[in-house]
Design a protein around this nucleic acid. Structure first.
Lengths: 229, 229
DNA sequence: CGCTAACTTGACAAATGTCAAAACATGTGG
DNA sequence: CCACATGTTTTGACATTTGTCAAGTTAGCG
């Protein structure tokens, strides 16, 4: 029974990009020190201001990182998908969580203690490089995100987001599926759901996109780029 | 003459947090491959969309990273001060610069080639850890920044910024100096200079702050926290 | 099939941006 | 040390965008 758990974790871990190339020894060390957490939809993993003890890897489900706000209005920063990790950056700093983390679906995450990871990093320069790459990637996305949010008008923000979601930047026509409920996407764009809804309508009327539920078909990417207001 | 240059670079490099604990060998390798760049005020170091070949360390002056915008309106993302570096994250990704970099004063920066740094990182796990810490720090600031910008009202944004600048979060009264011209700070808050000016006036009238030029004295941090609109 | 949550629509108020001009700094050269 | 030129900040009047509230519609799920 014990070995079964061990093996299933080994399987899960070896499938994670960050840990794919660990030696058998390293993997064993990691597995014995990692904790598995099952989260129900809506469950909070940590709150803003909590003290971090390590970082997390999402195996199944989806975790959202967000800023709380008095009136319950939250501002979603990012959605973490299976295979991705979060909270690494805080292992190297002496700071509290700047966001809270919540499962938006039933989820399974690994809780990797900080000292375990720091120990592995010291010995394995390839792992260090992977972690650097991972954090860098995250940072790049954050910047892209911030660029989108600093566009003046709501229409530009939505158009900008639609372009960033493109599977291939050279395509002029493509289809995307919003990564979350419209409310959530609106929040990421720093818009109210109402405004977001109206903007989608305007872009539809202009013949630039077609909306059906969460699926959006971009008909004229070039046109989206030219939007002035 | 050659040795003088070499020695001055060694001095500059050994004073940078990232490179402080390099071995003599490593330092020499670095020094011989690093390029010194002198930038005049206003000069562009790279444009958005350019291909990175390494990263930069600021020795003197100030470099701003910003998003361009059609009408010349730029959105300032961050200001890099002496001792800090930027562009590291892109060494690990295959992406173009998402921002442009410009000197806001006469500046001296070191251009560290990517392969040089990657070589050092492979051998020196302490350096890798420092770089992880550096990038993490940057990411944390970016998130703080993003939190500030997602506050609903302009007044809250400014109040939030004033709190983040506090030398000690427990103080209820303190003095700060804006890190740049008001225009620039406004841009970082995603506000027009006009709105920023008006907000400062409102906070002054409310007796929460005192403004004199770039120096702002916060009289009631608790009051800033309570701002609703 | 009914319940809840998500989304859309409309009418309205309020906050913020825009434009233009004036006041204020700052630095340069005589 | 002054006068001028340049750049920055402030102020005012105004238009516009976006958020708010409330109600209606649709969709998803047990």
């Amino acid at each position: 029974m014990r070995d079964q758990v061990f093996d299933s974790r080994r399987g899960a871990i070896s499938r994670l990009p960050l840990f794919r190339e660990l030696s058998a020894d390293e993997a064993s060390q990691l597995i014995s020190q990692v904790r598995e957490l099952r989260l129900d939809k809506g469950q909070i993993l940590f709150n803003k201001g909590d003290i971090p003890h390590g970082f997390f890897v999402v195996v199944e489900g989806r975790i959202q990182l967000a800023f709380p706000s008095e009136q319950g209005t939250e501002r979603v920063l990012e959605l973490i998908k299976p295979g991705e990790s979060f909270g690494e950056a805080l292992m190297f700093l002496d700071k509290a969580y700047p966001v809270f983390a919540q499962a938006t679906q039933d989820s399974l995450v690994l809780d990797v203690p900080g000292h375990t990871m720091l120990g592995l990093l010291e010995k394995d320069s390839r792992l260090a490089r992977k972690m650097l790459a991972g954090i860098s990637m995250r940072m790049h996305e954050l910047i892209t995100n911030l660029e989108t949010c600093s566009m003046r008008s709501s229409t530009q923000r939505v158009a900008c987001m639609l372009q960033h979601q493109a599977p291939d930047k050279s395509l002029n026509e493509y289809e995307i599926e919003l990564p979350a409920a419209k409310q959530t996407v609106a929040s990421q764009l720093n818009l109210t759901p109402e405004t977001f809804s109206r903007v989608l309508h305007v872009l539809s009327d202009a013949g630039l996109i077609e909306v059906s539920g969460r699926v959006i078909r971009v008909l004229d990417a070039e046109g989206l780029r030219r939007i002035e207001i």
